Amino acid sequence: MTQKILSVIIPAYNVANYIVECVDSLLAQIPAPNELIIINDGSTDDTLARIEKRYAAQEQVHIVTIPNGGLGQARDYGIALAQGQYIFCCDPDDVVCEGFYQELSQTIATYPEVELFCFNSLMFEDGDPSRTYPKVQHHQFGLLRAQDIFRGLLHSGAYTSATWNYVLKKEIIDRFKLKYITRLHEDHSFTVEAFMRCRIAWVSKNLYYRQRIRSGSLTNGNKSESFFRQRYDAFVCSYGKLIALSEEMNEKAELRRLYLIHSFKLMIHLSLASGQRVPDYVMHAIYYFGKSLKPEGAVNWLLLRQPELYSNLVKVKRSLRKA
């Protein structure tokens, strides 16, 4: 029996209007015996009915229903069932572009030592796919150290912890017992550990992922105070893993600096984009961690030395953009 190269894990919760487009974009290019594992996370709409009607007869597609527990639990459940050499966790309302699997399989055949496969992505508006915005844009390509890719993304501001940002060798997940676990911000710690645990990676020049922007999604819905607190806790946990897994002192210092600056900016922008004031614990963290960091640039100096002023300027800039 031919070995499965890829297992695609698709957690699905109340995405009846989108999941068919997502799954079809994958099936159009991923041949058997590779597998798609759809985890119906206790949907209350007709998500399950739609995927069963369209895919139940396809041997390549496995449909499993579990009680609702969030994205992290659904992904962990799917990964435990996966038989592929590589794992790709795809969100159910997004679209995977043609050529994704062809380049992945060719890369693995040429460089079997590759543990991480990365690519570019964009965002598109639900209802108007022609309106797009850049998401992850790589600036270095080909065969690279995974940590160098991580550093480059942090440096350019293009880093995202989104789990659909890469394909990961299952051996890495199994050997180091990587888990998503939590309901919110489940991918922050997982992705940091993926980049730090992997050695050899491949970065494609191509754009293979289209993230849908839609109201009501977990990414774009209204956010509670608990959401921001859990986002901060995810940052603390991820930062701890980054420090623990950094081997060389010089590399540790630079990754620490880049990750902290990137995280501080994201937490500020996330709060302001939601119409909330930046939480005090975020400001305290910036003062605490930032005092020992070299800003290397006026914007970063303002962020690390005058975070309230930085926050106010970002708020003004956002209001001018909307006007």
Rank of each mutant, 00 (worst) to 15 (best):
H185W: 12
F227Q: 07
T160V: 14
Q211S: 13
D187P: 03
R175G: 01
V203G: 04
L184I: 03
V203I: 07
V203E: 00
G221N: 11
T163Q: 06
K179S: 11
S224K: 14
K205A: 12
Y208R: 08
S161Y: 06
S226A: 13
C198N: 02
C198S: 12
I181P: 00
N222S: 15
N165S: 15
V192H: 06
N165C: 11
C198L: 05
A162P: 02
L218P: 00
T182Y: 08
I213R: 15
Y209V: 03
L168R: 02
A201Q: 05
N165V: 07
T182H: 10
S224Y: 07
K223S: 09
R212M: 13
I200A: 06
G216Q: 09
Y180G: 00
D174K: 13
F176R: 04
G216C: 12
D187K: 08
A162V: 09
I172W: 05
R199I: 07
K205P: 02
T182G: 07
Y159Q: 07
T160L: 05
R229H: 12
F176N: 09
F190R: 07
R183A: 10
I172R: 00
C198P: 03
H188Y: 11
N165M: 13
Q211Y: 13
S189H: 06
W164F: 15
I213G: 05
G216K: 10
D174L: 07
I181Q: 12
E193N: 13
A201E: 00
W164R: 10
E225W: 01
G221M: 14
Y159C: 05
S204Y: 08
K177W: 00
K205W: 04
S204M: 10
G216M: 11
F195H: 04
I172Y: 00
T191H: 03
K169E: 01
L168W: 02
N220Q: 12
R175K: 14
A194Q: 04
R175C: 04
V203N: 06
Q230R: 15
Y159R: 06
R229L: 15
S161A: 13
T163Y: 01
S161E: 09
Q230H: 15
R229Y: 10
N206S: 15
L178F: 03
C198R: 02
L218H: 13
T163C: 11
W164M: 11
R214D: 11
K223E: 00
D187V: 02
F228M: 10
D174R: 10
W202K: 02
E171I: 00
